[in-house]
Design a protein around this nucleic acid. Sequence first.
DNA 1: GTCTATATCTCGATAGAC
DNA 2: GTCTATCGAGATATAGAC
Lengths: 206, 206
Amino acid sequence: MQPEETKVDTEERIIMAALVVFARKGKDGARMQEIANEAGINKAMLHYYFRSKDKLYEAVFRHVFTRFSAQHATAVKESPTFAKTLKLFINGFIDSIKEKPDIVRLMVNENLSGGTALGNMIVEKQHEKAPPSILKRKLEQAIKNGEIRPVDPDHTLLTILSCCLFFFIWAPTIHIKIPKSKDWDAFIESRKEHIFDMVYNGLQPQ
Amino acid sequence: MQPEETKVDTEERIIMAALVVFARKGKDGARMQEIANEAGINKAMLHYYFRSKDKLYEAVFRHVFTRFSAQHATAVKESPTFAKTLKLFINGFIDSIKEKPDIVRLMVNENLSGGTALGNMIVEKQHEKAPPSILKRKLEQAIKNGEIRPVDPDHTLLTILSCCLFFFIWAPTIHIKIPKSKDWDAFIESRKEHIFDMVYNGLQPQ
DNA sequence: GTCTATATCTCGATAGAC
DNA sequence: GTCTATCGAGATATAGAC
């Protein structure tokens, strides 16, 4: 095997393993040994590839933002009607979270610890082409068209994001309180429909 | 000063300080030294009052559940119409979170690390008289009355909780993305209104 | 690039003076 | 009850053989 490929593969494996652990325990709570185990490699390798724990954490963040914000973007396509756009956004957004829920958990940890260092990255990377920005523009447009009633776009977008993200964050409690969520895939599908139903209906003129 | 009063006061001070740090860093990420600093006391005192870090964490959880779930409960009163009940729930719920947002953050950390030990407490303490349970019953009632359209009560309750809780969890990011949220109190008030508006309208027959 | 062994440091916890 | 000093486990990080 070529050294180049090996390096890329190992780096990727480490970052993915680190994402899992950082997401569960936070930056300070995470243990390098645990990350090494998760990656199926030696603890010393972590320091060989990423000098320190801090650098590794930063690398994970950078990777998450560049790689997955692009993947996100493809999930949301422009559509003729607002209803269609909304449905595509909700489905695409939830699907991409479902695939890598640890990304949300990482972001939550960062928000909880008030991470200002990487807060800057949020500003940099969540640009005009990001799905939330697209949806916000579509919202403003639909209000002008009279397609939906006049609402605050910021609050509305925040409401939609809340509905799509919160149940991933709160999952263990939900499993206890809502028995039918034990079938997680089915629950997610029903959740998609509920969110669209509630939001779209909530945006209709009275 | 009497030893008894001192003891109670110090215990309370420690628990409140521990809540802040545990909420920000999680159980594993929190440092006893940081908690001691926050409480304005010595590190050794923590072990004098609560044998170990584990016991302290457990004490914080127990305290939060007993003290604040009661306070929560008073916020939600029974009301004649569903609209009134919904508005009281949203306002009361958000107000009680606003007063101690660290409680939500603590719960989030527990959910992220998949805390099963204290997950049991959630089941124990969030009983029939808890505000969410009350609202769920009201929802089912209002559907039967034809006051609102038929929706899944579990999903609807989850949607409402998402809207009321998520913006506290995501606050640092929101401060960046939504400039007007810099005036946090005003933002919270506008959020209350938006949530009621969206949810209530979303529940109306088409 | 990968491993073992080890240095260095930090944290939770305790001992003991006051 | 409150403090200082310190122990011992466990963490990050490095050295050096292969």
